[in-house]
């Protein structure tokens, strides 16, 4: 086991190095850089930056240096000093920007995961045990609602409806009056009012996949001989279901964890943009749009390593959860 993990870690480092390079290259694929964008933006408003101003910007951010020098500076700073550079747009260290958003991203992802499971597991079990029934169809249609509606639109519509009919302040996580206020009961209530829309929209987006996995694996398991035998021996249905099949059916959901860790950030991006949640997704999007190199590259690297870690962890978890899987096969 130790050598297996060791080997996997070694490959992971290799992949990370590649990823950092690709991340840096991909961002520079579009022509121009942050300063060009900035200049264009200003000119659209009729403001021409003086040469001296442009020079100051170039000196400050170094975007005009050759690719390999910029890359080398960036990556060595990360490795040697853990310094991810500074964002030109925000004029702040990248680590700070990601840091203040990552917690919320994780909180939102975890809570939406709970929502997903709460909706998906009952529906999945019911429709696997009652296939082709009206309940099966209704459950599945409901479970697929989130998948079948474009998330950005659903979020906007819900935000609108909640404001119009409940008077809940749309967007963000707090109403202005509680933004700065210290934590209090009222502030918690205010937060609660802002959570349903994102949790529901992001949560239901994942239920469909979960339901399908659960339904199909569970149906497979229920057809197996050990279940048939158990049933023949008169084991009660409820007990029969929870003894083994469900445990086995949960396995594929564990491997779904891999995607989940990466999805912490990418999955909710669109919804977060519409709802103006201060998570990592919108940060990446605007950084890419504005060609804010340091943020974009660091975020891609960061998300990439989360994804790689996720795969590794879920592979290891699978081995632990399901002893039938051997390392040899995994490799």
């Amino acid at each position: 086991m130790a050598s297996y993990i060791g080997r996997r870690l070694f490959y992971m480092v290799l992949l990370l190095i590649m990823l950092s390079f690709v991340a840096f290259a991909v961002i520079q694929l579009p022509p121009g850089d942050w300063i060009d964008n900035f200049i264009y933006y200003m000119e659209r408003f009729g403001v021409t930056l003086d040469e001296s101003a442009i020079e100051a910007l170039n000196k400050r951010w170094g975007f005009k240096e050759p690719f390999h020098i910029q890359y080398w500076k960036w990556i060595t700073n990360i490795i040697v000093r853990g310094d991810f550079g500074e964002s030109a747009t925000h004029n702040r260290p990248v680590a700070e920007l990601i840091g203040e958003r990552i917690m919320l991203s994780i909180v939102i992802s975890l809570s939406t995961m709970v929502v997903t499971y709460i909706i998906a597991i009952p529906i999945g079990i019911y429709s696997a045990t009652h296939p082709y029934s009206v309940g099966d169809y209704t459950g599945v249609v409901f479970g697929f609602m989130g998948l079948a509606t474009p998330n950005f639109l659903l979020a906007l519509i819900l935000m609108f409806l909640f404001q119009r009919y409940f008077g809940w302040s749309p967007g963000g996580l707090f109403s202005p009056e509680y933004l700065v206020a210290p934590w209090s009961f009222a502030k918690v209530i205010d937060l609660m009012k802002h959570l349903p829309v994102p949790l529901f929209v992001i949560g239901t987006a994942g239920t469909a996949g979960m339901i399908r996995v659960l339904r199909t694996t569970l149906m497979d398991e229920l057809g197996r001989q050990y279940v048939v035998t158990a049933r023949a021996k008169g084991v009660r249905e409820g007990r029969l279901l929870f003894k083994y099949p469900i445990r086995l059916a949960i396995n594929p959901m564990v491997s779904g964890l891999a995607g989940l860790l990466a999805g912490v950030v990418s999955g909710e991006a669109l919804v977060s943009i519409v709802l103006s949640l201060p998570t990592v997704g919108p940060l990446l999007l605007t950084a890419l749009l504005e060609q804010d190199l340091q943020i974009a590259a660091s975020l891609i690297l960061f998300l990439g390593s989360l994804g790689l870690f996720g795969t590794l962890i879920s592979d290891l978890l699978l081995v632990v959860v399901d002893p039938r899987i051997r390392f040899e096969k995994q490799m």
Binding site: L15, A262, A269, L284, L288, A296, L308
Partner: peptide
């Protein structure tokens, strides 16, 4: 390993880079 690599790479930057290229 290629599968892992590709799955770890966020899709958005690729789309944006392509769209601009």
């Amino acid at each position: 390993r290629i599968v892992e690599f590709i799955e770890a790479m966020p899709g958005l930057p690729l789309w944006m880079a392509l769209a601009a290229a």
